[in-house]
């Protein structure tokens, strides 16, 4: 059996150096292998969200995305166009900081006239079993927003005098969702619609 390496300053630094460089080399290689797939996975999620919140589009909204101003912050805006290049849907990646735990992001799809087409929860840390019912695959709660026009419909929760039934035992999450949708609508009316020439 080989004898164990002695602990001298030279051997210690040499061994650590070799291990560290081998490790970074290996990781750089794995990173280069997985980079495209990771980008694709991230993009895929966004594309899926976009196809759900807009009517069928023929362009590539992600490549044409741009930022719009909203209350001193900015939101990502995606335009869905039909085969003739007409805008048929607008998706706005909006957020709320009124959520139960931290912040969550919602993709809100609007028709050009401002009527809500569909909304989908993107990232959140809401309580499993309660606030996470705002997710599409957990419950169809968020479908209530569809078809409503925030300028004529009050999209607040019923507890605040609006038309949306809050999620049972998760009023804060529901309220936050409404806040996020309203933020997207306001940004659309102020920043996007005037420029679309509709």
């Amino acid at each position: 059996m080989a004898t164990k390496m002695k602990s001298t300053i030279l051997s210690m630094s040499l061994v650590l150096l070799v291990i560290a460089s081998l490790s970074s080399g290996l990781l750089a290689y794995v990173y280069s292998l997985t980079k495209d797939a990771i980008d694709l996975a991230n993009k895929q999620k966004k594309i899926e969200a976009l196809t759900q919140v807009m009517p069928e589009f023929y362009n590539s909204p992600i490549d044409e995305a741009y930022k719009i101003a909203s209350d001193g912050d900015s939101l990502n805006c995606y335009l869905g166009k039909d085969a003739n290049g007409e805008v048929i849907g607008i998706a706005i990646e909006t957020y709320t900081d009124k959520a139960f735990s931290g912040k969550f992001t919602v993709m809100v799809g609007l028709q050009p006239d401002g009527v809500i087409y569909n909304t989908i929860m993107l990232e959140h840390q809401e309580t499993p079993g309660l606030g996470d019912k705002a997710e599409k695959n957990k419950s169809d709660w968020s479908n209530q927003y569809n078809g409503k026009n925030p300028s004529t419909n009050n999209i607040a929760v019923t507890k605040d005098g609006g038309e949306i039934d809050g999620i049972t035992a998760a009023t804060i999450s529901s309220r936050a969702y409404s806040d996020a949708v309203q933020r997207a609508y306001n940004a659309y009316m102020n920043e996007v619609k005037p420029n679309l020439g509709l």
């Binding site: 164990k4 390496m5 602990s7 061994v15 650590l16 990781l27 794995v30």
Partner: peptide, 24 residues
Amino acid sequence: IKNLIPDKVRIPSYIVIIATFVTI
């Protein structure tokens, strides 16, 4: 590689090895 690693830097070496696989 247990015999190649000097005793005193054993833990840091193990940690780097583990962290590498975790990142993978």
